[in-house]
Design a protein around this nucleic acid. Structure first.
Lengths: 207, 207
DNA sequence: CACTGTCACTTGACACTGTCACCTGACAGC
DNA sequence: GCTGTCAGGTGACAGTGTCAAGTGACAGTG
């Protein structure tokens, strides 16, 4: 049900891996199907026998990304923690870490000009599943007394916004220069922001 | 000092406007310099007499965007409000509204593959100026007693993350489908998220 | 006046891209 | 032996960003 056949053709997988590799090395602008085919050692047209077009390849990468992200959310939910707030904090850190460890996936996941979610239902479904995990974590916080007088959807949107915004700002935004890739400051900032967020949540809960 | 000459060549301005228009209509993928030139009624090479290359055009758009964003921050800071927290809340709403009203500018501002900030110092400077305004607003909150045991930088990063993340999620992310362009729900969600955020800040302040 | 730069812009070419239509060869079923 | 299917290849097409060279208007200077 995950859309890929049980034994994916070798070439299909090789194309996907080459695409991710190229994406990480050259960025979205440098991703060319012909270069991908070259790296996979096949003709420029071979990928079209496994993917309808360029968007389909990127869609498959996005879907893979959403699945990986969901796994991290599940791990954060199942990991022993003192409170639901701590779990949500872990999930936030996991979200940003995912973005920083898989920048190619992450960028493709949120670029509608590359992946139109309506045209790649598998990617949309995987994204909804991931968002569903986040909502479960928020629900646990509400059950533990979180109350800011807004709907669960608004709270979930806030939580997702913090994690997503921080990921974007570090990956592609102004924080990229302040926090270089190999610096300890990067991880420290991520954890600090998520601590800020957890403490705010705790402060607004009835406990 | 804003980098543009006092009387910009007419064509330069026309190219910029045509680029923004095309960007809004077709998205980043549909932006071609040749189409821009066509819309401006000039040859495909004419834009190169006003901009070094494609990146320079996008850089100019990004710079313009950061200036517009900064103006909104300034307006939020100068607007009468009950507290610094309310001001920060207004700034957050203004940030998201800017993103939704100027999607072309916003997308270009945070796409390093389109605009390399290092290569377009004017854009980087404009971005730093805008971030500076945000930091002033956060400083006002700290002066009013906000204390979550983290640095001002971490607090500012959190605030920016919420606004930036929400903008991205509505513009290009999963919230785009939940909150269509012409729906009241969109504005309501933006305000709700920012209220959540303000209340959290107030709850963690000594007052 | 003629000469010389300079400036805004055009023309033409180049390599590269995604995609289309068609070809090749291997293999399965009958 | 024949046919259909399917992975993959070849070649062509229009569209792209960019380089190099050309054109014409205009200002300055002799």
């Amino acid at each position: 049900m995950t859309s890929a056949p049980a034994l994916p053709t070798d070439l299909r997988e090789r194309i996907l891996r080459a695409s991710v590799e190229l994406l990480e090395q050259e960025g979205v602008a440098g991703l060319s199907l012909r270069e991908v085919a070259r790296r996979a050692g096949v003709s420029h047209q071979a990928p079209y026998h496994h993917f309808a077009d360029r968007a389909a390849i990127l869609g498959a990468i996005a879907e893979e990304g959403f699945r990986l992200l969901r796994e991290r959310f599940v791990a954060a939910r199942e990991r022993p923690a003192k409170s639901a707030f701590a779990r949500l904090e872990h999930a936030g850190v996991a979200y940003v870490e995912f973005a920083l460890e898989h920048p190619a996936h992450f960028r493709v996941m949120f670029r509608p000009e590359l992946v139109d979610p309506a045209a790649v239902p598998a990617a949309k479904q995987a994204g909804d599943d991931a968002f569903g995990e986040l909502k479960k974590l928020v629900a646990m916080c509400v059950d533990e007394g979180l109350d800011v007088g807004e709907s669960r959807e608004a709270i979930a949107a806030t939580a997702w916004s913090v994690a997503h915004g921080l990921s974007c700002l570090i990956l592609d935004g102004p924080l990229a220069h302040v926090l270089p890739e190999e610096s300890k400051a990067r991880g420290q900032t991520v954890r600090a922001v998520m601590r800020v967020f957890r403490r705010q949540f705790e402060a607004t809960s009835k406990r």
